[in-house]
Design a protein around this nucleic acid. Structure first.
Lengths: 171, 171
DNA sequence: TATTGTTATACTCTATAACTATA
DNA sequence: TATAGTTATAGAGTATAACAATA
């Protein structure tokens, strides 16, 4: 993603101070991004990189990555669903979902139970440890979400969610 | 990506017809995404997947991927900049930028010229073929951008760009 | 010494094909 | 024959370390 896993927040990049108008003594020549700065696809990518960066910083403390977070929350909210149902809901291929669940199971956060009426499928549940962790993750994600949206305010946040849903569903 | 390169738009996924309110006879139990549907990071990801999917569909005809598109446009707008300057502006590591430029050069779209006053660095330029292609790409991206933002309207589009810039810069 | 471009390398994410066990 | 889960595998994206040429 466009994003990556290894989080090295070392070199805090120097941002421009004067955001209003071209500064008299500009440091760098400033590259013109042209149409990229007016196209949703590119700005989505840059925004997502920034947000995921903050996410990694926040959640590296509990060693949870975005995909793991999403799976844990969805199992917590929908216990007993079949593996493929959850994978589909999250837009993850069931083939890639296997090792993801393996990891959660190995850490004692989730578990597979063979479904009652279909012995092919596994129903997913959180362990007590998993439930406890999710409670913590919910608090963490709220802080994270507020931090990355500081600049756009509450009303901007509300608008952004609505607009993004429109883009995501607009196929 | 969150996104990928191989574009298989085969199975057109069945979308719900009744978008207004819960249908009386629902097909699937509908998984509750819980907080994911209220958090910017997750919705950014879903929106980006949708947009990039459309991008791949559109630009596979000319065999151009997002990163290539961005590089071509920026060279076109800023001819003669050094390799690393362009890489930095696009948030691409210079080490990964090498093969990207290699590809454009091999296709005869761009070229490296050793900089006049610093023989370590390569200045980048588009060839005539490259300039011709970029003109076409600009027309294509406009149509693409309009298509993926159909649902949110012109005002929504304007708002979204502004909000995304706020998120991307808000570090 | 520092910087530019480069190579080699590693890890994550996403994708397809093919297997197995059940239905 | 079809489906759920799985394994193996491949490609793109992104990261670091180390090198040569040049400043």
């Amino acid at each position: 993603m466009p994003y990556n896993n290894r989080m090295t927040r070392k070199n805090a990049k120097p941002r421009r101070k004067n955001a209003n108008g071209p500064a008299p003594t500009r440091a760098a020549p400033a590259v013109d991004l042209d149409v990229l700065d007016r196209v949703v696809g590119y700005l989505l990518r840059r925004a997502q990189l920034a947000v995921f960066h903050d996410f990694f910083e926040t959640f590296s403390k509990v060693n949870v990555r975005p995909a793991q977070f999403s799976v844990l929350v969805v199992i917590d909210r929908n216990p007993g669903l079949k593996q493929t149902q959850i994978a589909d809901a999250l837009g993850i291929k069931r083939t890639n979902f296997v090792s993801l669940v393996d990891g959660l199971e190995r850490r004692g956060l989730a578990e597979r139970r063979t479904a009652a009426h279909d012995r092919r499928s596994s129903a997913l549940y959180l362990t007590d440890a998993g439930k406890t962790l999710v409670r913590k993750l919910r608090r963490m994600v709220e802080v994270h979400d507020r931090r990355v949206t500081t600049r756009i305010g509450e009303e901007g946040h509300r608008q952004l969610l609505e607009l993004l849903r429109g883009i995501a569903d607009g196929r």
